[in-house]
């Protein structure tokens, strides 16, 4: 599974993301729409870090990108590329 599939699968396991189309779902601000709770975000961060071998910095977690499902996918993909470049 690629990053997008993994991220969507994670949210699927938490009850799914609201939105009629995939585009809507990728725009979903999952932190504010309470798709996940306070423990959900801990689980999410720990799971993505373990799965993709990355570690979110405070700036990355506070970015606007981190707040939407689509943004999160882009962020993880970029972090993985940067890591691959060393």
């Amino acid at each position: 599974m690629d990053v997008k599939q993994q991220v969507l699968a994670f949210f699927g396991s938490k009850g799914g993301i609201p939105g009629a189309t995939e585009e809507d779902r990728l725009k979903c601000e999952y932190l504010d729409t309470r798709v996940i709770d306070s423990m959900g975000i801990v689980a999410m961060v720990l799971e993505f870090e373990a799965t993709f071998g990355i570690r979110f910095s405070p700036a990355e977690m506070q970015s606007m990108e981190f707040r939407t499902v689509g943004g999160l996918i882009s962020l993880i993909e970029r972090m993985r590329k940067e890591q691959a470049r060393g």
Binding site: L31, R34, I36, D37, S38, G40, I41, M61, F66, R67
Partner: peptide, 9 residues
Amino acid sequence: TFHASSIID
């Protein structure tokens, strides 16, 4: 109330 978004910042 403390929730997912509160943790980030």
